[in-house]
Design a binder for these strands. Structure first.
Length: 247
DNA sequence: TCTGGGGTCCTAGGACCC
DNA sequence: TCTGGGGTCCTAGGACCC
């Protein structure tokens, strides 16, 4: 659990401590669960603080101490640094956030446009706003088969089920999709995606299903057995109520 | 971890239009 | 007809997060 304050004054962070204690106490008495809480002035630090001293921890990172606090932590701790970026940084001798702070070169040469942001993160600076909205950007489903298969009956049934699920979720959110996407994975883990954008948004399961079949066929994706089959929709908007133009 | 599922964001290339 | 630039959209893949 991360609490982050918009104000940068360290005083307000410390003032949040009793609230955090109360929260922990309430979770314990009502749910019999421990909780770890982090308090800081932005999302990045509050998240790092909330991962600190698990379980049952309570950590405040003040603006005054943030640079020193971060120094010994591995670069992987930072938001946006996964396995690949971690390896890239490690190769030039950057292992800790302190190394990142001290790095004299241009990080863009290593991580592209993420460079400037990464440098800011290393110093505990993060101006990303808190987002409370719950806007959905895509809906998808996928299934990994027990055994690789190119059995059309099995694949059709799978696609139909996914289309029905997607359609139900679209209807529940009162949305239509302008993009339909299929995903396949073969036995050697090769993964491909193919998508199509349509002018009239789709909502009905039959339309999503048909477009999924169309994509599989058009791109000859079932030329060998599949380990995974996925179906998804994106570019979600209010449906227009018009009928889908047949392909 | 020989690899599950559902997401978001970014980037690069190509098509197309003006 | 050819060349070029710029903008936008679509597509595909990769990295990352939870």
């Amino acid at each position: 659990m991360a609490i982050c304050q918009a104000e940068d004054a360290d005083g307000s962070l410390v003032m949040a401590l009793p609230l955090a204690q109360q929260l922990k106490q309430r979770i314990l008495s009502e749910r019999q669960l421990t909780a770890t809480i982090g308090i800081a002035s932005n999302k990045l630090l509050a998240k790092i603080a909330s991962d600190h001293k698990k379980p049952d921890g309570l950590t405040v990172i003040t603006d005054q101490e943030k640079v020193l606090f971060l120094r010994p932590l591995p670069v992987r701790t930072l938001y946006g640094v996964g396995k690949v970026t971690e390896q890239t940084l490690n190769k030039v001798g950057i292992a800790t956030i302190g190394d990142l702070q001290d790095y004299p070169g241009d990080l863009r040469a290593l991580v592209g446009s993420f460079g400037p942001k990464l440098k800011q993160f290393a110093f505990g600076e993060d101006d990303r706003p808190l987002e409370i909205g719950d806007e959905i950007k895509s809906i998808s489903g996928e299934e990994t088969f027990l055994n690789d298969t190119d059995d059309r009956k099995v694949l059709r049934a799978c696609l139909k089920e996914q289309a029905a699920d997607i359609s139900a979720r679209l209807k529940h959110k009162r949305l239509g999709a302008h993009t339909v996407q299929v995903k396949v994975r073969y036995g050697d883990f090769t993964t491909l995606t193919r998508q199509i954008t349509i002018e009239t948004p789709v909502t009905e399961a039959s339309d999503v299903y048909r477009l999924g079949c169309f994509l599989l066929g058009r791109n000859k994706l079932v030329s060998r057995p599949l380990r995974l089959l996925g179906l998804g929709v994106a570019s979600l908007r209010e449906p227009s109520g018009q009928q889908l133009v047949l392909l």
